[in-house]
Design a protein around this nucleic acid. Structure first.
Lengths: 340, 340
DNA sequence: ATGAAAGCGCTAACAT
DNA sequence: ATGTTAGCGCTTTCAT
């Protein structure tokens, strides 16, 4: 018969340890949490008893008492499967998980499968009732959040993968505009003078803005624009359209690796060579970009640093909420045709 | 000033609700949990108060009292980055997360970055002390677990992504042997008669066994064997080796999509055409395989079904521990050269 | 340096 | 049908 869980009154409690060590229950707590000085010899006995009994403090009780569960949550606000379908998102969860673990926090993960804002708030309240110490929200372009409404739940939160929100609040994002500018500059530098844009981005979106402005600086028209889904299939469709054009652009800038993978696939299908016929440059720098064929030149987002910053913000909230921008880095591979 | 969390004595408790609804605290509980009959009209008042106050039961208190947190944990026993680097693993976490959510459970995720068995046990105990109701362990080929040791922690567990363990315990896995047999059969059926094997698998591993046996049935030598890392880079190295052979095999069976992606990449680098020069068939059926170039023919693992089964096993443990095998399905795409 | 005891918010057994 | 009450295991204040 297998013992079923630490529950059911079977498990070792602080009382058992106290008895075995011949001290009061309080001393066990002191020894373990350093709430008060304990004689070295006493501590020794307590620790021995803890080890012998295999005692682990009941975290539910600790949480009830202290108000903190030493737990964070990660909430994906995107379409249901984005979190495992978009490698950069998967990397984000993992990085947050690691950052949390390093600081002694456990991590809940959840997603709101297309439920919109109401669903997000519901999930946030669920985590609040689970007494989490903070929530990392992975932004989606579709879902507009209201900082005030978020604050009202009473759980510290930070929004990642986002631009600065006019509503304020704590948020973290990569330097999209800067990265796209560098990428576009790289393309022009290497002699491409007709550059298309692939992605699901509104006119004002930083990457799209950078595309337009850098084109303007070089006196060429920013065109064509492929406004497609932020998925592999979206990228593939853009490629098919492109291949059908009478005078296709000589290069394309794609908003994300996930979409770019679809572009690559679509171009292959049509027999369009990369980079000989069309050069491709992309954004994210996920591992996927490294093993694509040809290797995808991409603007790398510093996921680890951003994840760590997000966790730190939750654990020690800054005086004032703000948006934090992280620098990006162009990783040159084969798809842009400029590889050494 | 932002309110900091549901903790700190600020939050709404069952008492507040009781007062506002003009009932005792117990009735609030009854209304919410159905522990006892409540007059419809009273229930109405309670629910109204709950809504007005935005009350959510404190889960720490509930857990302390009832012993159940309605929480599961997902623990990856693999190299640190496998969970986001291997798409099929990422899909697994997500599927478990969904299955758990559908049943009203939250999910912790964690990984044991190369810490070996001791680290795993430690993590398991950590979850036990957090009063989780069960743990899904995602197996790694490197780490051998001892069911008895696992049981001793006192948390229900189930091992997924594994073959039957001689030590017993609850486990779940896909029909590796059957799937590989079908894949190999498909290759022979389409006229390939020299088939290599790429993967990090011991002699007795089901996929490798199937490769050997099906080759034997067709009277051909099972060769060459590329014993490489279970990573993209491993696959790439195998491809480079293969391209260097004086008489390379006409097809290869690769143990996983992740490795196969590396193979594809390596073959492209060497100018080896797929499937014209070498056909490739793989295992997992992750989304990655669909958008590879050429589309990867792969044996699809029923991740969702296995994830759901894992969660069900934890929530309602079977009388007797056992290993459960799930059927797989061959998805034919371009890489095997047999696409319609 | 150590112990006694209050109480976190909840569920459930028992009383009405 | 509703109220009263005893803890769940812990941290922490206040005594000693």
């Amino acid at each position: 018969m297998v013992r079923q869980g630490g529950r059911g009154g079977r498990s070792v409690t602080r009382r058992d340890v106290a008895e075995r060590a011949g001290v009061s229950a309080a001393v066990v707590s002191y020894t373990l949490n350093g709430g008060a000085p304990v004689a070295p010899e006493t501590a020794q006995r307590v620790l021995k008893a803890v080890a012998e009994l295999g005692y682990r403090p009941n975290q539910a009780a600790r949480a009830l008492r202290s108000g903190s569960t030493r737990t964070l949550a990660f909430l994906t606000l995107d379409a249901d499967d984005a979190i495992f379908t978009n490698p950069i998102f998967a990397e984000y969860v993992h990085a947050v998980q690691r950052a949390a673990a390093e600081r002694g926090y456990a991590l809940y993960t959840a997603s709101t499968p297309g439920g919109g804002r109401a669903r997000t708030m519901q999930e946030l309240r669920e985590f609040a009732s689970r007494q989490v110490d903070g929530v990392v929200l992975l932004a989606s372009s579709e879902q507009q959040l209201d900082p005030a409404e978020l604050d009202a739940v009473g759980v510290p939160w930070v929004l990642v993968n986002t631009e600065e929100s006019p509503g304020g609040g704590n948020s973290i994002g990569a330097d999209l505009f800067g990265g796209a500018t560098v990428a576009m500059g790289h393309l022009f530098e290497h002699g491409y003078s007709s550059i298309g844009f692939v992605g699901d981005a509104p006119r004002s979106e930083p990457r799209r803005r950078a595309w337009r402005e850098v084109c303007a600086e070089h006196g060429v028209e920013a065109s064509p624009l492929f406004d497609v889904d932020f998925t592999r299939e979206g990228g593939r469709e853009a490629a098919l359209e492109l291949a059908d054009l009478s005078s296709p652009p000589r290069a394309v800038f794609v908003v994300s690796d996930r979409t770019a993978l679809g572009v690559l696939r679509g171009l292959h299908e049509c027999g369009v060579r990369v980079p000989e016929d069309v050069a491709v440059i992309s954004f994210d720098g996920s591992w996927e970009s490294a093993y694509a064929w040809p290797g995808l030149t991409s603007v790398r987002q510093p996921i680890e640093a951003m994840a760590a910053a997000a966790v730190d913000r939750l654990i020690s909230p800054p005086e004032e909420a703000s948006h934090q921008v992280f620098p990006v880095e162009l990783i040159v591979r084969e798809s842009c045709g400029a590889h050494a």
